[in-house]
């Protein structure tokens, strides 16, 4: 998929654990893992908003478009 999820990088920069982020934004660790691994088919605006709020970043910091 040409959309890359850079959540791992942001989490490492902020030194936040995946489990803590999942708890903060109110999703399961399994779903966060799907998002991190790039297996997700879509991301809700509400989830994106919660992630950006929790990590104090912009959507562009998490999502990146790379041509195949």
């Amino acid at each position: 998929m040409p959309i890359i999820v850079n959540l791992d990088i942001i989490l490492a920069k902020r030194k936040i654990k995946s489990k803590d982020l999942a708890e903060t934004i109110g999703i399961t660790t399994a779903n966060l893992s799907i998002l991190k691994s790039g297996k997700a088919k879509a991301v809700r605006f509400s989830t994106l908003e919660a992630i950006c709020k929790a990590l104090d970043c912009q959507p562009a910091d998490i999502l990146e478009y790379v041509e195949d």
């Binding site: 799907i34 997700a40 991301v43 809700r44």
Partner: peptide
């Protein structure tokens, strides 16, 4: 359903 399940 699969698509819905993979929407986070």
């Amino acid at each position: 359903k699969e698509e819905n399940d993979l929407t986070i």
